[in-house]
Design a binder for these strands. Structure first.
Lengths: 151, 151
DNA sequence: TTTAATTTTATGTTGAACCATTTAATATAT
DNA sequence: ATATATTAAATGGTTCAACATAAAATTAAA
């Protein structure tokens, strides 16, 4: 991977600065590989994310509830949902109890697509195969600690 | 940070899967904090990135050379450069030796802006203050290993 | 030398983040 | 009961990633 060659060539002010760059590289690497799995199904990572959230919930969720469960806090949920509606992977119905809300449900077509994608789950997990179990745990610990700032 | 609460509440298939989610969270956290520093100067992370690359180069760079030094391989360099031109932070001149190329140079105004931003460098580094030196090194090692896949 | 291939930049499109504002519905206060 | 505040969703604007294609200049080939 040329990214890696790149990052090793560069000079850094500190290990902390290198860690920032490294985090960005690693995120980009992860996204690139994620897209490889999803592209053939004409699905973006965020669309996939929302589909999984809806299936996991097992009941209709409002746009706000979806957003709160998404990885990107600030995601433009209503427009992503609209794209999923256009692809007929989800349905949108105004909530009768509170008509400000929209009940979003995964459709049969959406469920079928996820079933197909479940097949990829193991290759998907294998993305991080270079780390063994304990290294993955270690990484999780460091990232948690990293983010745990007071602000 | 509510992100962290979130990630600890969730159930994960494996430490590897958690590490993926954790990487995404951490990247988003980093970007959010980066933007906080740049917003007051009406600069995006990518624009800042290009300005630093140009100053660091010490000579005019072509659009392609800039892109090759950027963190995001696929970045839309020519349009970002155009926005910097509009802000008068860089200049664009067609290269006389090879008229396909465009020589991009940081302007005095751009240089002044970076000088101001240099002031923030220490707070900037302090973003990762929760990790000590050896933890940062450890994180770098794990991220390098993570990405070092064959494909 | 003229044609073909390659390189570099520009442009177009879609998806999405982020920010602000608007609209509709509900809850609260007077 | 009406006016105000709050909440949820939709919408508009800008920036950028990712992908494709076009246009211009250069290089290679015939």
């Amino acid at each position: 991977m040329s990214l890696n060659k790149d990052i090793n060539q560069r000079k850094f002010r500190s290990e902390h600065q290198k860690a920032m760059i490294n985090l960005i590289y690693s995120y980009n690497w992860l996204m690139e590989n994620t897209r490889k799995h999803l592209d053939q199904y004409d699905l973006t990572p965020q669309q996939f994310n929302i589909l999984r959230i809806l299936r996991g919930a097992g009941e209709p969720l409002s746009t706000l509830q979806i957003r709160q469960r998404m990885l990107d806090k600030m995601s433009d949920t209503s427009r992503i949902v609209d794209r999923l509606v256009k692809k007929e992977l989800v349905q949108k119905v105004v909530c009768s109890a509170d008509r400000r809300l929209v009940d979003v449900t995964i459709s049969d077509k959406g469920r079928e697509l996820l079933t197909i994608l479940d097949t990829h789950e193991s290759e998907w997990d294998a993305l991080l195969k270079n780390l063994d179990q304990s290294e993955a745990t270690q990484l999780n610990g460091l990232l948690d600690k990293l983010r745990n700032s007071q602000d």
